[in-house]
Computed example of a mutant assay.
Amino acid sequence: MKLLIACIAVVTLAAEVELQKSYRQRRKNSVVKAFSDADIVPEVIATAPEQFLGAWYGENEINLGTDMFAGDGIELPTLEYDVEPGCFYTFMIFDKDVPCAKNPSWRSYLMGMWVNVVDMDLESSCEIATYVAPSPIPGTGPHTYIMLLYKQAEEIDATDENLTCLQNDRLMFCVEDFAANYSLCDPVAGNFYTSVFPMDGPNSKVA
Rank of each mutant, 00 (worst) to 15 (best):
V188I: 15
D97I: 06
S124P: 03
V115F: 03
P134L: 06
T130S: 09
A46K: 06
L19D: 10
F192M: 04
V41Y: 00
Y182K: 04
F69I: 15
V11L: 15
F69N: 14
V118K: 11
G58N: 12
G65E: 05
F197L: 01
L13H: 12
Y57A: 07
S125T: 15
D37V: 10
F197P: 00
E61N: 09
P99G: 05
V206L: 13
M111G: 11
D121K: 14
L149M: 12
F94M: 05
E155V: 09
K33F: 05
A189Q: 07
V11W: 08
L13G: 09
L163W: 00
Y182Q: 01
K2C: 14
W114H: 13
D169V: 06
D82I: 00
A15K: 10
P136E: 07
V175M: 06
P104N: 02
S125M: 12
G112P: 00
D169A: 14
L171H: 09
A34W: 01
G190M: 01
E84V: 12
L76G: 09
V188L: 12
M68F: 07
A9L: 15
S204N: 10
D72C: 06
D119T: 07
N63L: 13
Q152F: 04
A9G: 07
G141Y: 01
T164Y: 00
E84S: 11
L148W: 01
